[in-house]
């Protein structure tokens, strides 16, 4: 059984705990063992913390990476922000020995050392690359027939030169993962457009962020979608909450882990669906 250090991040455990719960249940069903990465902090968030001070962003990320290294495990994330930050920080530290040395000077203060061994993975690509779509299909007990708008988010596939997961302009990984449940993924205009929340836009220029979101929602509805499936709690939050303020949209927003939870027969309460702002009527 593949074993990972489960990195929670902020938005999933503190705003959408159903995503955390579903991930735990789904991982086990898929033969992935999750060990809590205890004592971890925020990744830190690329939007504000990296934009404010790259050194702080790197040092705090290195602390999280070092905790996983100490546990002898690779990190598994369920959020594009966490994945982006930790993957990018690990990439920089692994490529630049001087930078690693500088960061280790700081980690020394808390009795940690990072030697550059931690791989950073995203739940979605672990499912795709390690479990495999055919094995997933065989494990689905409650197939669904939803018409889905898949939402990749930005930091899962990009920057693609270092992530190297799928074509960043025309990917299929998430669509295949969604269709493994029996759902149909619908093609739409501008499918890879950003949700608008990132880079600190949501927290400071919410009206601009909302325009990104509305454009996405319009394209989803025009394509005939009846729900959104994301792989990032921050995109998830943006779509779920924005629809309360925008008139005329009511697309339920599910994280991939929640869709899989449904397809594995998980209880609605455990999925946390009633905590969503946009009602999830299935």
């Amino acid at each position: 059984m593949a074993k990972y250090a489960f990195f929670l991040g902020c938005i999933a455990p503190l705003r959408y705990p159903g995503i955390e719960k579903s991930t735990r249940v789904v991982a086990e069903a898929m033969g992935i063992e999750l060990v809590d990465l205890t004592d971890a902090s925020c990744c830190p968030a690329p939007g504000v913390i990296r934009a404010f001070d790259k050194k702080t962003w790197l040092a705090a990320a290195a602390r999280n990476l070092a905790l996983a290294e100490k546990a002898g495990l690779d990190i598994l994330t369920i959020c594009n922000g966490c994945y982006g930050s930790l993957f990018d920080a690990a990439h920089e530290l692994h490529a630049d020995k001087n930078l690693l040395k500088e960061v280790n000077e700081i980690l020394k203060e808390v009795g940690l050392k990072y030697s550059g061994k931690t791989n950073v993975r995203h739940f979605a690509e672990v499912l795709y690359n390690d479990v495999g779509v055919e094995n997933i299909k065989a494990k689905i007990t409650n197939p669904v027939g939803y018409r889905v708008a898949t939402f990749y988010g930005c930091h899962f596939l990009k920057p693609s030169d270092i992530k190297q997961l799928d074509d960043p302009e025309n990917p299929k990984m998430l669509d295949d993962l969604v269709e493994a449940t029996g759902a149909v993924s619908l093609y739409r205009k501008d499918k890879m457009m950003c949700c608008g929340a990132g880079g600190g836009l949501r927290s400071q220029f919410g009206d601009s962020a909302m325009k990104f979101t509305e454009e996405n929602l319009k394209n989803m509805v025009d394509a005939g979608s009846e729900m959104i499936v994301d792989i990032c709690p921050f995109c998830h939050l943006q779509f779920d909450r924005a629809q309360a303020d925008l008139k005329g949209y009511a697309l339920p927003v599910l994280h991939l882990s929640q869709l899989y939870g449904i397809a594995l027969g998980m209880d609605r309460k455990e999925l946390g669906l009633d905590a969503h702002v946009t009602p999830v009527k299935l």
Binding site: D36, D39, T56, A60, E109, L112
Partner: peptide, 23 residues
């Protein structure tokens, strides 16, 4: 959740890092 929120010592370590970087 079992993060820095659940462990005072971990939170103190995190704080030390932010002090060291001047954040």
């Amino acid at each position: 959740p079992p993060t820095v929120l659940a462990n005072e010592k971990a939170m103190a370590d995190f704080d030390k890092i932010l002090k060291a970087t001047g954040f």
